[in-house]
Simulated scan of single mutants.
Amino acid sequence: MKQVRELMSEDCKTVTLQDNIYEAAVIMAENDIGFVPVVDQGNGSSLIGAVTDRDLVVRGYAQKRPGSSAISEVMSDHLISTSPDTDAEEAAAIMAQHQIRRLPVVENGHLVGVIALGDLALGNTTEQNAGQALSEISEHHDQQHLH
């Protein structure tokens, strides 16, 4: 059974509270990603939040916030995370339960990587679980837009 550490992406692009909305958007565009963890500038890798492309639109652009607005105005600070020692099936179950597609991986309070549903599907041992998680998340997402 594979662990999260075997499947996660370790080369994470991050921002700090010193960065603004525009800088987060540029990082997303340049790296073709939609999720950027927010880390503590003083501590370097202590996870304090995350920003998604949807956060930039819903909490930023739609609220008429300029690109110079602080990351703290759009970020989520109540994050679900996992440990690198978590097994892949459990990570897929966490994603399904919380309706999320990406999980920051934290060890001793420090960000060490990010695991996405796609990483779990590529792990083969969890293809069924990752597929089930994606199906549940997509169903929930579609239902939200119908109401």
Rank of each mutant, 00 (worst) to 15 (best):
G113R: 00
L79W: 03
D32Q: 12
S72D: 07
S83E: 13
Y22A: 13
A116R: 04
N124W: 06
F35C: 07
I80C: 01
G123W: 00
H78P: 00
Q63N: 13
L134R: 03
I21G: 04
D85A: 11
R65P: 00
P84E: 06
I27L: 13
H78Y: 08
I137L: 10
M75V: 05
I137F: 11
L7V: 15
L17I: 10
K13G: 05
V58S: 11
V74D: 08
Q132A: 14
K13F: 11
I94W: 01
L56R: 03
L117E: 07
E30K: 15
T125Y: 04
A96S: 15
N43S: 13
S76L: 10
Q132F: 11
R59G: 08
A91S: 02
D87C: 12
A92C: 14
T14Y: 00
E139M: 08
A24M: 03
S45E: 14
T86W: 01
V114M: 04
A133G: 12
C12N: 10
H141L: 12
N31R: 05
A91L: 01
S81L: 02
P84Y: 02
Y61K: 06
Q18A: 15
G109N: 10
A96D: 05
G131W: 08
L7T: 11
A121K: 10
S45W: 02
P84K: 01
Q63P: 07
A133D: 06
A121S: 15
Q3W: 09
Q97M: 07
G34C: 05
V38Q: 03
K64R: 12
A25H: 03
L7D: 08
M1D: 10
N31C: 00
Q63W: 00
L79P: 00
A133W: 04
E73N: 02
S135T: 14
L103T: 12
G34Y: 04
V38M: 02
V112H: 02
T126W: 04
E136Y: 08
K2F: 14
D119T: 06
L146A: 13
M1I: 11
A88N: 02
G67A: 08
P104C: 14
T16E: 07
L56V: 13
Q143I: 05
G113E: 07
Q99R: 15
E139D: 12
D77A: 07
S69Q: 06
I115F: 05
Y22T: 07
Y22M: 12
A70N: 09
N43L: 12
I115H: 03
G123Y: 00
E73G: 01
F35K: 01
H145F: 08
A29R: 13
A70V: 03
H145S: 10
R101K: 15
E6N: 13
G113C: 03
V58K: 09
A25V: 09
G113I: 01
R65T: 03
S72C: 06
I115T: 13
G123L: 05
G60C: 09
